[in-house]
């Protein structure tokens, strides 16, 4: 099954015939539908696990109740009230979901600082190089760094544009080859641990 779909999709890339395109379109649609079904299933699993916690009055059940309330509210708002402007669905999104998400994202600023403080130690040449480049880039991209003259900004730009891009390309090429090998083994059924088979 894996192999059939795999090779069909691979060969399709080289077949311009409309039959190939129809097949391609269908399979893409199936993939979308399966993902969508999975999402709804995930929602159901999520609700079920919280329901169990609440009904069993297990530790933290009050939080589970909150989660269920938020879920129900959003579902009801979206499925009944619609998703256009001026609906409860979008109001909840704009005033609760989006700001909460932005805040969690902004926690990164703190974590990044803490990680830099503890992790950026010039233990050896590699770590020192990482540290220095990061500092140069940080200084080169702020007004204070620019006040020291064009050297820092230019160096920062060159580091980003030349050696960093080269390393990134090296990583990408390696990943590309590795992905192809994994994909091929999966298609041939050699590698099946993703479904628990012991190869």
């Amino acid at each position: 099954m894996v192999g059939v779909f795999g090779f069909a999709m691979l060969i399709q890339y080289f077949v311009p015939h409309p039959l190939g395109r129809v097949l391609y379109g269908r399979v893409l649609e199936w993939m979308q539908v399966i993902f969508a079904a999975g999402l709804v299933l995930g929602g159901a699993t999520y609700a079920m696990s919280h329901l169990r916690t609440v009904s069993g009055r297990r530790e933290g059940w009050i939080y589970s109740l909150l989660a269920l309330a938020a879920l129900t509210l959003m579902l009801a708002a979206g499925l009944i009230g619609g998703i256009d402007r001026g609906t409860l669905f979008l109001w909840l999104f704009n005033n609760l979901q989006a700001p909460l998400q932005q805040t969690v994202f902004s926690l990164l600023a703190f974590f990044v600082a803490s990680a830099a403080y503890r992790g950026f130690r010039a233990r050896n040449i590699d770590a020192a190089l990482l540290l220095i480049v990061a500092l140069v880039v940080m200084l080169g991209r702020i007004p204070i760094g620019e006040m020291t003259g064009p050297f820092l900004p230019d160096l920062a730009r060159w580091l980003v544009d030349v050696p960093a891009v080269a390393a990134k390309r090296g990583i990408l090429i390696g990943i590309g080859l590795g992905s192809v090998a994994v994909a091929l083994r999966v298609m041939l059924g050699i590698e099946r641990a993703w479904l628990g088979g012991r190869r």
Binding site: G43, L71, L73
Partner: peptide, 9 residues
């Protein structure tokens, strides 16, 4: 929990 509930919804 509210964020996760909302986002699942």
């Amino acid at each position: 929990q509210i964020l996760v509930g909302l986002s699942v919804g």
